[in-house]
Amino acid sequence: MNRFLLLLISIIIISSCELYEQDDYQEYYVVESYLIADSPLPNLLLSKTSPIEEKYSFKDAVVNEAEVEVRLLNADSTIAERYAYTQNGNGTYSPTAQAKVKPKRLYQLYISLSNGDSIEAKTFVPGNFEVLNKDQISKEYTYQSDQQVQLRTTPSDYITDRQTYYIFTINAVNPDSSKLTPFYRDLVIDQENSIENFTINSSGIINEKNYERNADDTITLDVPWLSIAFYDTNKIITNAIDDNMYDFVRTQDAQTGGTSLSPGEIQNIRYHVHGGIGIFGSMASDTLQVQILRPDQQ
């Protein structure tokens, strides 16, 4: 009996030793660039991560003197075109020549660093789409009236034939606190959130299947009043995002809570960058401008 107890206690003591040790901090290269269909090739930011205990500043984390190239790939992954980038400020790289991002094409980012390290990422640019009813859309909408901003768009294609993932953004043209709608006024004035949080207001990811496809294969999208943070002039931007942005947004949202993960359980963001982290993403978008009137302005 005593031997049994001794054995049991020994097993418990041995098992109690934590075999699942926390990792040490490791530094990663961070890339950031977003290709927008039919827009010029974007700039790229290159930096490094910083330990959590230290003050973070992009200026201190930049990586300079890298060789940056964005490549347009053929369907068989051979290189169709190369776009060289040059350093244009601390950690910022710009294309040396003007070129437009082609929709429904695969792009590759390739970075070589002076120490021999390299970073690589790919993105498939979603097919461009068009808001068809721009001419029919009223220029003025009364906030929270029955008539919401309703868009009719062509669909956006993607390499995997998946449904489109949309993010609506409402960019206030001349934001100031006197123009805040009631919900956001409460958040800014009473709950002391920064007004900057809402000058570009995002809907979060909305799947295409939330909406019916019309008989002519177009999609009708309603812009929810919740996304309007400011009265006056707003740009309504409909974005169809690629897989890299989809994974980035949804996993970054999960880091800030609100999922079924227990509080305190933090998962890494899903990056699609080899040799580093960050985002080399793409999207297609279309913009229209409307005037949002106060209810008493009608």
Partner: peptide
């Protein structure tokens, strides 16, 4: 958390 970074130009966010 061990480290941190940020995306500065995310097109659907002002922050």
């Amino acid at each position: 958390p061990l480290g941190q970074t940020a995306a500065f130009n995310f097109p659907t966010s002002s922050l």
